[in-house]
Every structure is written in structure tokens, then in C-alpha cells.
């Protein structure tokens, strides 16, 4: 069976960027690329969950971080896996400053639009990674 792409958002809870990344990953894994993409609980890497560690080790990995702290990428690297690509929500936001999320978790229409734009960008990234 061919490799899949595991896309892991940081899901930060302090700012809306974390929720946007999370929603973009669901959009990608459930609607845009359900055959190629799956996601997992990031925190399971910290408890050395064997299933999650194997999933990350045996597939391509893309991380989606809310901010420049790059927590998702760092967590994957701490588990011994080099990520194949990493994106930041804040970069997508810079290009679409008109799309302001309404709240941290209640994104509202503009926040969901931003999440969808990010999901499309991620979809392109998945194609690039799979061509490897």
C-alpha cells in the first residue's frame, strides 16, 4: 500500500490561528483529499503512542502551525521524524487580512473562508510531497 500524507495541525487554543489550522486539516482530510490524507492527535507523540509514532514514521508528514513557534513541527521532530513540509497559518492570514476570524474557536464566515483557502494551499502541498 502506498504512503499517505499525515497532516498535523498544532491546534493551539490561545489564538484563532490554531483553530483555523485545525479546520483546514479537517477540510483537507475529509473533503479535498480523503484518499491521500489522514490526521492524528499531535499530543499522542508526546506519550510515545506506538500506533501514532508508526503512522508518522511510515508516511509523509506535513505540519500546520498557527504561529512562528512552530509547535507541531517541533513535536514531530522531537519524535524523531523530519517533516516533509511545514506551513504556518499566519502566512495565509497575511495574504488575506480582510478575512478576520470572529473568535478563537467560533471562526465565523471569514475565518472558515480562510481555513478553506489554507486547505487548498495544503492540497497543493500534498501533491508536491506525494510526487517525491
Amino acid at each position: 500500500m502506498g504512503k499517505k500524507v499525515v497532516v498535523l495541525p498544532c491546534s493551539g487554543i490561545g489564538k484563532a490561528y490554531g483553530e483555523i489550522g485545525r479546520q483546514a486539516v479537517y477540510d483537507l482530510a475529509e473533503d479535498l483529499k480523503p484518499e491521500d490524507v489522514k490526521t492524528a492527535c499531535l499530543a499522542r507523540l508526546m506519550i510515545d503512542d506506538p500506533e501514532t509514532k508508526a503512522m508518522v514514521k511510515d508516511n509523509f508528514v506535513i505540519t500546520v502551525d498557527g504561529c512562528g513557534m512552530d509547535c507541531a513541527r517541533k513535536n514531530v521532530e522531537a519524535a524523531g521524524k523530519q517533516v516533509d513540509s511545514s506551513l504556518r497559518v499566519v502566512e495565509a492570514f497575511k495574504k488575506h487580512r480582510d478575512l478576520k476570524p470572529q473568535g478563537v474557536l467560533e471562526l465565523g464566515e471569514p475565518g472558515f473562508k480562510l481555513a478553506h483557502i489554507l486547505a487548498e494551499r495544503l492540497s497543493e502541498e500534498v501533491d508536491c510531497v506525494m510526487k517525491k
Binding site: 498544532c10 491546534s11 493551539g12 487554543i13 490561545g14 490554531g18 499531535l42 499530543a43 508526546m46 513557534m69 512552530d70 509547535c71 507541531a72 517541533k74 513535536n75 522531537a78
Partner: peptide, 12 residues
């Protein structure tokens, strides 16, 4: 206050 788990784990 919230403690952001991914940041906490990443060494915050």
C-alpha cells in the same frame, strides 16, 4: 489561564 499543550510540549 490556558496552557497551550503543543507549546508546552515543544519546550515553552
Amino acid at each position: 489561564v490556558t496552557v497551550c499543550l503543543p507549546l508546552f510540549i515543544a519546550g515553552g
